[in-house]
Design a protein around this nucleic acid. Structure first.
Lengths: 236, 236
DNA sequence: CGGCCTATGTGCGTTAGCCCACGGACGCAC
DNA sequence: GTGCGTCCGTGGGCTAACGCACATAGGCCG
């Protein structure tokens, strides 16, 4: 999954990978929504009302242990679907779904997804494989968060985000990033400063720009490549 | 899921939760196997030959980043199945499956599981829900590993293991534990020493005994309760 | 009983990341 | 412009955990 070019229409990859027949059937059930940066789509314990198929938006899945202990465990962009619990037969969320990249998405009611999952079309098969990709992503990130220094993890995170948006710039405060990486805000300042000094990114007041993707890939640990490969497998 | 009593026959919970009809059909396909401590059932990149339904054995799922960077991301005991990738339509493993607790398990060929998954019986539904439990376990552990001190994580790990075995004693070196928790061996020595000083466990040369379960629960972070609740939901 | 292997205990210097506190800086609103 | 809220940078002290090196200690085997 490489970054999309500007002006190219972006569509969710799961939906795009459906056979025409299935897509036709689902289209009337899908409702386009604009996701706003910072929106919380669901909280642990909530009953899922909808599932979301991001186009150029990004939804972060956060585990909340205590109030201060927030950690992103998964990132969902156009390669996936948020609200997987519904598909897995559990209607309640265990994580927080936070809009981390504003943009558009298609959504479907939980009831529709359940019906579709039971119907045996192409979607459930795809979602199974997507579930595996997400499992891999979460596992690899877990190990990464355990072993790798903040700088490398930040680079990985920026690359994963870059893959899911359109263009090279996005909105992002360090405070926010600290929750994604599970570190202090000051830790992000240092790490981001280092990347900026290397001319890999430019960063200013909640706005970030990727300057040197190849450089970021070098700065990141190989966890990025592992996770990416898993998603590339998914819809090809 | 509470610890099983001695002399009580232990059966894998997923299999036990199947309606009689499904269980009857599957029984001839299931082969009992004795799992040996330290056995590696699969490595990243391996094609899954079998899936495993542990009875009183435990299989650890490890993520390996580098050789020295091993981390348990999931633990599979009688509440689950190892080899979930097969069910998810990906026949290749992404993790290492290591026998962490010797004991018996039932296994089934990957081909049989695929057939069964396509057949629409009760098993696929159960496996979907189990997948959700595992996702929750991995996510919660990820956050736990990020935020909580070694002592609490060790207590959590011991409790999770205790829940999956028969009796109060098991085999376990500190070297081994260090890979489970993703810390140094010396770190385990300290943490285990602390628990032993509190009379919660006794520990000697690769052999550990749970002395005070309630005490361990107090010493653990609440991640233990979160994960346990998820599994208790699964088959009731 | 002596030798050796595995497992555990311990100590010490180093470091990454924590917590706390504050200073500066940009940017929008009025 | 003035003001104020948000965001970013920096410094100092602290702690958990690391890496390395080595000391013990039980267990098996000859």
């Amino acid at each position: 999954m490489s970054p999309a070019k500007k002006d190219e229409p972006v569509m969710n990859r799961l939906l795009a990978a459906l056979p025409k027949k299935d897509r036709q059937r689902l289209l009337p059930e899908l409702e386009p929504v604009a996701l706003i940066f910072g929106d919380i789509l669901f909280e642990p314990g909530d009953r899922h009302q909808h599932v979301y198929f991001p186009d150029d938006s990004i939804i972060s899945l956060l585990a909340a242990v205590e109030d201060r202990e927030l950690l992103e465990v998964g990132m969902v962009g156009r390669e996936g679907m948020a609200g997987l619990a519904v598909f897995l037969g559990v209607n309640e969320s265990r994580s927080r779904g936070l809009v981390q990249g504003a943009g558009s998405a298609m959504r479907m009611t939980a009831a529709t997804l359940r019906r579709e999952a039971a119907g045996g079309g192409a979607l459930p098969k795809l979602l199974l494989r997507y579930t595996h990709s997400l499992l891999t992503q979460i596992s690899q990130s877990a190990a990464c968060n355990r072993f790798h220094p903040v700088n490398a993890r930040l680079a990985r995170w920026l690359l994963m985000t870059h893959d899911r948006i359109v263009g090279d710039e996005f909105r992002l405060t360090q405070e926010f990033l600290s929750h994604m990486l599970g570190v202090r805000r000051e830790g992000v300042t240092l790490a981001a400063g280092a990347l900026q000094k290397q001319q890999l990114i430019s960063y200013s007041r909640g706005h970030i720009k990727i300057l040197d993707r190849a450089g970021l890939e070098a700065a990141s640990c190989k966890c990025y490549a592992v996770i990416k490969a898993e998603y590339d497998n998914l819809t090809e």
